[in-house]
């Protein structure tokens, strides 16, 4: 704003506009920074986040058996796969899949399949962990809620779920134990 323009009376509008805008902007920043801690307080608390890793001993799980452990409050499926299951998972043509992922990309060691046991449709726990459970049309897991079928690698093959069962980040601590998270 030039000194000349500032002196003329009808310029008052501009000055006032500036005051309104800057007051409004400061107000908005103020409200925002006041609201921030309250909104953040709703996000997972420190103790919830602290439960973010879990260690599992795999040695008692026989070939062909599966166990379910809890990680971040979610069920995690750990399956000791048989040769036949590994072979079945690997001979599937990846190009035909809905969520294209090869079995190799979903495991660290082929005999151990580790994944979050939550259906990627609307969050039910699929069946297939117990021997007596239905395993769906693709020898893996079957979600009874809306009928999603997963294969030996936990990949979605049929039904409404959009994605494969999630593989969490995990690592082998020893040959027979893993840390999830």
């Amino acid at each position: 704003m030039s000194a000349k323009a500032a002196k003329t009376h009808d310029d008052g509008g501009t000055r006032r506009d500036f005051l309104y805008l800057s007051a409004g902007a400061f107000g908005a920043v103020g409200v925002g920074s006041f609201a921030w801690p309250f909104l953040q307080s709703l996000a997972p608390a420190a103790d919830t986040r602290a439960l973010a890793t879990v260690e599992v001993d795999l040695s008692p799980i026989e070939v062909g058996q599966a166990i379910t452990v809890v990680w971040q409050g979610k069920p995690v499926f750990i399956r000791h796969r048989t040769e036949k299951e590994i072979e079945g998972a690997r001979k599937t043509d990846v190009a035909t899949l809905r969520d294209k992922e090869s079995d190799e990309d979903r495991v660290i060691k082929p005999e151990w399949l580790v994944m979050v046991g939550i259906c990627t449709h609307l969050g039910c726990v699929p069946l297939g962990q117990k021997k007596s459970d239905p395993k769906g049309d693709f020898h893996g897991w079957f979600c009874p809620c809306h009928g999603s079928h997963y294969d030996e690698s936990g990949r979605i093959r049929k039904g409404p779920a959009p994605k494969n069962l999630t593989v969490p980040t995990y690592s082998f601590i020893t040959d027979t134990s893993i840390r999830i998270g």
């Binding site: 909104l39 709703l42 996000a43 997972p44 608390a45 919830t48 971040q72 409050g73 979610k74 449709h121 609307l122 969050g123 039910c124 809620c145």
Partner: peptide, 30 residues
Amino acid sequence: TVITGFFSAIPVIGEDIQTWLLGGFTVDNA
């Protein structure tokens, strides 16, 4: 679980919104 799962349908930020709504990674005490 199913109803809050709707929010995970939102592209990109859906899962974060769901976690924020639940106050955890699943429906729990929070």
